[in-house]
Amino acid sequence: MLAIIGAVLFALALILDLADANIGDTINAATIVTAGLLCVALHLAGVGTRARTGGGWSLRSRK
């Protein structure tokens, strides 16, 4: 999910950069790119992933 948010932020930053637009004094394309990189880094670190409990196969023998 964080990777998707990062991709959306990168797309928004690209559109703002191509249009040479600014949202405000503090929010510009570089700020949005930094937020996108943060989301991708968190995704790669494993933040926001669900813990798998009780799933998968086991080594129990069937009788």
Rank of each mutant, 00 (worst) to 15 (best):
M1F: 03
M1H: 05
M1W: 01
M1Q: 05
L2W: 00
A3V: 01
I5S: 12
I5H: 09
A7N: 11
A7T: 03
A7E: 10
V8S: 12
V8A: 14
F10M: 15
A11L: 13
A11E: 12
L12W: 02
L12G: 12
L12M: 11
L12F: 04
L12E: 06
A13R: 03
A13M: 09
A13I: 02
A13K: 04
A13L: 10
L14T: 06
L14S: 14
L14G: 13
D17Q: 15
L18V: 03
L18D: 10
A19P: 13
A19Y: 07
D20T: 02
A21S: 13
N22Q: 09
N22E: 09
N22S: 10
N22R: 09
N22L: 05
N22K: 07
I23C: 15
I23F: 14
I23G: 15
G24A: 11
G24I: 00
G24R: 02
G24Q: 04
G24C: 13
D25C: 13
D25G: 15
D25L: 14
T26D: 15
T26G: 15
T26P: 15
I27T: 13
A29C: 11
A30E: 11
A30H: 04
I32T: 08
T34R: 12
T34G: 15
A35Q: 04
G36V: 00
C39D: 02
C39L: 04
A41R: 06
L42I: 04
H43D: 13
L44G: 10
L44E: 07
A45E: 00
G46L: 03
G46K: 01
G46D: 02
V47D: 08
V47Q: 03
G48H: 01
T49N: 10
T49Y: 06
R50T: 02
A51P: 09
R52I: 05
T53L: 11
T53P: 10
T53C: 11
G56F: 02
W57Y: 06
S58E: 04
L59S: 09
L59D: 07
R60F: 05
S61K: 05
K63T: 06
K63Y: 03
